[in-house]
Design a protein around this nucleic acid. Structure first.
Length: 263
DNA sequence: AAGAGACACAACCGCAGTACT
DNA sequence: GAGTACTGCGGTTGTGTCTCT
């Protein structure tokens, strides 16, 4: 890559390559004034000769407050390994659980520290993992459906975009029941159920994990717990953040015991 | 000291999903 | 419903720095 070669676009010449301190200052000032989002307006507002993508990336990966730099702690590494096992290359989701770490950080760290090792020790296909008497098959990555929280849906915090929504609801004190609804039905429900607190998000996250349905279908296996999180969540997940809200996960004051799925 | 290779990180690119017209 | 614009994500690449020989 020629780090400073400008490219020509219909809008003119856009600078590429490393950011200067002046550019950082302009971008930071712009975000402070107008807030995050509307990235297509940022170059004009800030006076930067950069494309919107470049501005967004610079802010998210470098300029945002509370970004942690430096080595990953052993706890973070452990968490990263576990989450990657669960989620695969869903870097933004993983980063959402690592305070102060960006998706790019996580991705870079993974690629430099673990990718080669994994290639060296290629996993056996369909390897079974035992966890508290339950058997998991390795490499079955849970893939949550994409979510989007547009400004038009500010009152529908947990709108899922997949056609079939899986809800887990409490029934008869602790018994769980899975309910599938259409997206439109779900919109109605979520707009009414403002106390949802993220149960559905996690239920959706784990939708493809057969363990949930097995556990719920089989009353004798109370394995999946959806519990209120007493301690603050690990991080603000930017990709789950509603526009105008603070930092994402603090609005998701509920977590589930995904750790029971790990190890 | 110098060159080669490895590593770490920043940044770019292409694509998919969603919103808007 | 179609076309376009915007956003966000993951994969990939470029470059500076460090380490080894």
């Amino acid at each position: 890559m020629n780090s400073t070669t400008p490219i020509c676009t219909p809008l003119g010449v856009v600078r590429k390559g490393s950011w200067t301190e002046d550019e950082d200052f302009l971008l930071r000032k712009c975000i402070q004034k107008y807030g995050e989002g509307k990235w297509h307006l940022v170059p004009a507002r800030s006076g930067l000769n950069r494309c919107r993508k470049s501005c967004r990336l610079r802010w998210l990966n470098y300029l945002r407050p509370h970004i942690k730099r430096g080595d990953f702690s052993s706890d973070e590494t452990d968490l990263l390994l576990r989450l990657h096992k669960l989620l695969g290359n869903r870097w933004s989701l993983i980063a959402g659980r690592l305070p102060g770490r960006t998706a790019n950080d996580v991705k870079n760290y993974w690629n430099t520290h673990f990718q080669k090792k994994l290639n060296t020790f290629a996993p056996l296909p369909h390897r079974k993992i035992h966890n508290n008497g339950r058997v998991f098959t390795k490499n079955e990555i849970i893939k949550p459906q994409p979510r989007n929280f547009s400004s038009a849906k500010k009152n529908v915090p947990y709108l899922f975009t997949n056609k079939s929504i899986t809800n887990i609801v409490d029934k008869d004190e602790g018994r769980k029941e899975i309910i599938r609804t259409s997206t439109s039905d779900h919109q109605k429900q979520t707009s009414e159920a403002s106390t949802d607190n993220g149960y559905k998000w996690w239920a959706n996250l784990l939708k493809n994990c057969n363990e949930i349905e097995e556990a719920v279908a089989d009353d004798t296996t109370p394995t999946i717990f959806l519990r209120e999180e007493k301690t603050p969540p690990l991080n603000g997940g930017a990709n789950c953040m509603l526009k105008g809200q603070s930092d994402g996960w603090d609005d998701f004051s509920v977590d589930i015991d995904i750790w029971s799925l790990l190890n």
